[in-house]
């Protein structure tokens, strides 16, 4: 029986936690395997929301990644990618739940209460974005 005496180095936790809303940012250059300290772009929460009711899905990203609307507004998402995507609330119980959106498909949702709504694409969960709804 062989017993490993080498402590495992598993960079998953640090690298994963650093990854907050990488969508809309440029991927780091292909310089080598992922390192825990690699640049991950600006977290969406630090970005001022864009006031708009239209979000496009392009190059595996929601754009703008952080939008702001008033209560009662309807946001329209349009998939301009060649790949299918979804608009789905993060976690459980959120209101956003599109069907699979193929190229050119749209999804609309009317926000009826204020708050921050985080969502992602279930097919590519690294695609994340936020809608800020104000009173």
């Amino acid at each position: 029986m062989r017993i490993s005496l080498v402590a495992q180095r598993i960079p998953i936790a640090t690298a994963g936690l650093a990854l907050l809303a990488a969508c809309g940012t440029t991927a780091p250059p292909a310089a080598g395997p992922p390192m825990s300290g690699m640049p991950m772009g600006t977290a969406a929460a630090d970005t001022a929301p864009v006031t708009t009711d239209a979000v496009s899905i392009e190059d595996f990203a929601f754009a703008p990644a952080r939008v702001s609307v008033k209560v009662g507004a309807t946001i329209t998402w349009t998939n301009s990618d060649q790949e299918p995507h979804t608009v789905t609330s993060s976690g459980t119980g959120g209101p956003l739940k599109s069907t699979t959106m193929n190229t050119g498909d749209t999804y609309r949702y009317t926000f009826t209460s204020p708050g921050e709504y985080e969502y992602l694409c279930t097919i590519h969960p690294f695609m994340t974005a936020t809608v800020v709804v104000t009173a």
Partner: peptide, 28 residues
């Protein structure tokens, strides 16, 4: 993957370390 192959593209598992720790005592 259960290892961090490229987290920016979702190529990793955020809680894989918990499982790998349980398997650490095994030779292979």
């Amino acid at each position: 993957p259960l290892f961090a192959m490229y987290p920016a593209w979702g190529w990793g598992t955020d809680d894989a370390a918990a499982v790998l720790n349980l398997l650490r005592r095994f030779a292979s």
